[in-house]
Write a protein that binds this DNA or RNA. Structure first.
Lengths: 151, 151
DNA sequence: CCTCCTGTAATTTTTAAATTTACATCATTA
DNA sequence: TAATGATGTAAATTTAAAAATTACAGGAGG
């Protein structure tokens, strides 16, 4: 029924891990501070990303690392990992139309028909954007800000 | 942040009005019964569709009618009418990343960059589907069901 | 064996969506 | 012209979904 903020937090984490994962121990506590969301939320997100093979998280001692080339991590893959049935939740449908009315009896079929196309298009769209793209956007943003600060 | 069920209800209403608007007085009460949602919700939806010029609603006496050819009513137009800033609400962003962290300071810019593309693609996708399409899906569904029932 | 971390369940809080209640206003008609 | 049956909206309540919190078992490494 929506694209959740968890997806944004996941991207935040992935970029952070890419940038700092090799230099320091990236814990859920640290990601929590950086992203402003709760450590447990972070751990749940990391756990989902890990199950999907995008990152590895060291149990016990802690620390996360990318476990997959950034160009293989698409926005679609992130959404799916975070919210396994996100396709079906994307668009809300009113649950109880009347079975006594012809429109009520058939509206779900009609909606599915159009919504299916929307979902497919959206998935294509999400597959076109990768973590690699976003990392390069991030670097570009850092540079811009640097130049701006220098002036 | 999502495509709401109100959009589905709006489509329900539009198809209903197309089918029955000329034969009987389509009131919010009737649409409420058919769709299973509240008459006030219906009135709010009809009000939004009316403001956008898709339908006309007779004040006082009641009754709704299509006020626009079905091929000019796109899913995008419906979504926008129902939820004026739905573009910006489509994807959730975590609101309070840390300004002390380089990733935190720049994540919103980075996300906007990718999300903007997603939003544009989605809008294109929504513009491709019209009420005319959905009405013909509806008629097809009616026919299928009829044949099936006959067997 | 102590410390710091992960993983996860259960609860509570917060936020958003939908319903309900209430009532002013307007057209029709009896 | 008053009664009727609608719309249009605001405000309050209820419901449902998302996020945060609390709690704790278990692993790795000094």
């Amino acid at each position: 029924m929506h694209i959740s903020t968890k997806c944004s937090v996941a991207i935040h984490c992935l970029i952070f891990i890419y940038e700092y994962g090799e230099k320091q121990k990236v814990t859920s506590e640290l990601l929590s501070l950086s992203s402003g969301s709760n450590p447990v939320t972070i751990r749940n997100i990391l756990s989902a990303l890990k199950k999907d093979g995008m990152i590895s998280v060291r149990f016990g001692t802690g620390g996360a690392a990318l476990d997959c080339p950034p160009d293989e991590i698409t926005l679609y893959r992130i959404c799916r990992a975070i919210e396994p049935d996100f396709d079906s939740k994307l668009i809300g449908v009113h649950p109880m139309p009347s079975p006594l009315c012809p429109v009520g009896r058939n509206i779900h079929t009609v909606l599915d028909c159009s919504y299916q196309k929307i979902r497919e298009d959206l998935c294509e769209s999400l597959k076109k954007i990768t973590l690699e793209n976003m990392i390069s956007d991030y670097k570009g943003t850092l540079d811009n800000r640097k130049n701006y600060d220098d002036e």
